[in-house]
Design a protein around this nucleic acid. Sequence first.
DNA 1: AATCCATTTGACAACGCTGTCAGTTTGCTG
DNA 2: CAGCAAACTGACAGCGTTGTCAAATGGATT
Lengths: 344, 344
Amino acid sequence: MNPDRAKVTIFDVAEHAGVSIKTVSRVVNNEPNVRENTRERVMLAVRELRYQPNAAARELSGKRSRIIGLIYENAEEFSYLNDVFNGALGICEPAGYSLLLRPLTLPDPEIIDHIRQFATNARVEGIVLPAPMGDLPEVSGLLREMRIPFAAITPREPAPDEINILCNDEAASHALTELLIRQGHDAIGFIKGHPDHGASHKRFAGYRRALKQHGVAYAPRLVRQGYFDFESGRIAAGRMLDLPNPPSAVLASNDDMAAGAIFAARKRGLNVPGELSIAGFDDTRFSSRIWPPLTTVRQPIVQMAETAAALLIDKLNGHSTEAPDAPFECEVVIRESTAPLSPA
Amino acid sequence: MNPDRAKVTIFDVAEHAGVSIKTVSRVVNNEPNVRENTRERVMLAVRELRYQPNAAARELSGKRSRIIGLIYENAEEFSYLNDVFNGALGICEPAGYSLLLRPLTLPDPEIIDHIRQFATNARVEGIVLPAPMGDLPEVSGLLREMRIPFAAITPREPAPDEINILCNDEAASHALTELLIRQGHDAIGFIKGHPDHGASHKRFAGYRRALKQHGVAYAPRLVRQGYFDFESGRIAAGRMLDLPNPPSAVLASNDDMAAGAIFAARKRGLNVPGELSIAGFDDTRFSSRIWPPLTTVRQPIVQMAETAAALLIDKLNGHSTEAPDAPFECEVVIRESTAPLSPA
DNA sequence: AATCCATTTGACAACGCTGTCAGTTTGCTG
DNA sequence: CAGCAAACTGACAGCGTTGTCAAATGGATT
């Protein structure tokens, strides 16, 4: 530690303001029962001396670490996490909290131990769980058991007394499918996402609902299991395209798989979107950088993460945690990878 | 803080092992002057009780926070940072350090204040500076002045007594250019990177050296300024392609700009790599997902970040910081966006 | 002016660890 | 077997805050 830094203590402020250290503590922590007059005097001293409370002493004495953990899957795709980090950090910092990262590589047979150790060792007060961490029952179960508050950013059903940040994946998927149907497509392939992710089911459900609503027959042969990665999308799309009656459009449950589908189409000499429309999900950073730019669905991830962190901090501070009334809205982004069914 | 957690203190261990707390402290901190016999007894007690030192108390008493900061540019492209995070976290965690993130949006006129505040407030012991943070003289200058040890992962010239992690960008750029020359290209465009990044200059230097070495004339009209983002790459490439005698190959200083170049080529109906070879730099995650997959250069970023963190921690622990003898090696990855010059 | 109660303030003991320094043991020497 | 240095070990005082609880203050009521 550098000798030049962090030397103004609560005693200095107390002396400067002519009060006791406890009063300074009260002011700094916004506690009640301080006369307005006194409060101002202390604040002035704080500002003049540039006092910054010592976090370690605070934690040791007050039992509050002001640290929030963020446990995430260390997947390849990072733009989602980037948004989550930014959202969470943006809230934590001004609130005086630190954010501690804990990447985990899934599947992880020792996940329970890892999380338990993280929670204990890193003395986090609360934890943010972006997808797919929030989807894993063993994770939320452990945290519940350890009585560590958490906020899950994940499309699972809301649990009472737990913070859940949702978005309307299902509706967005429905809208996207509807778009393709309106463009004349009636053989629409679907590449499912990883079955452990709540989002996968929501997205598939939206697809099916749209088909049904518009009287388009559901064809199991046009549905393939994918795992949210490029490779599985490439393979799944390839299988469909090699079918005797291939689909004229493919909806992938995320952009990575959509990119895989484009790759597969191109390998087979198919023009996208002329001969095959392809849409994705997530509006990943590269969605607009590939050719053709992807039609996809954008989620307000930064906002969702902000809300997660804010609600979590509220809860930690004993404020009433009122969940947002409605799920966050996704937005369909129409680009050039989809087009009306050509007359051929 | 949860009542169930973190209750075993140094006193419990001391009692269990039949020694004083100070001895436990010595063992836990690997201090000398403890009889082997005693050490083992204490270790046993530590393990049996699952003792985990209280970080706050340690910091308060010992003046060591065991926190390392990571200041980074909050750019759109994240795969580089992902690798940096993973590398640094992978080292910090087992070493008992926490990693605290501080994203900064560049350019930031108040960068000095932001960093100063981060360093003071967050009580970091040392800081990792990935590119382009390490390139900014005001940043390294401030840290030097504040006497906070830092490790810069950046292609600047090594500074004495400072930790610098380098890689041979220049050589890789040279090799990539050479590859194109060998494929028959003699009108090779170059899109420069952001002038504030050290890497930009290295990469340009490698290009020029290769041209010179192989007797290919250097044509300023084939060199354009870019800023490492897709859009600037698209524009720069577009300008070159609209030239009366356009290049048959374009080397972009990173993959984002290379993707922009592919985009520009496609807009003009040019076949890549048939009519135009394009190569990038960095082997971003999407390099192999776009069409055609990009020929590019891969840097061992995870290793570089690991080394940065490890050397920094060594330094903080007072060990001799011996810099790695040689810069890290980049690797040219040949994919399908480059091809021999076609006879036409 | 005296009394009472609510509000405000302060004294002081934790919190769990490391640094300091003094005390105790051990292993050699002579 | 005493004597001595070196190797160990332990007692105790902080570190800078917050929690507890007692004391002081102030205003309203007799």
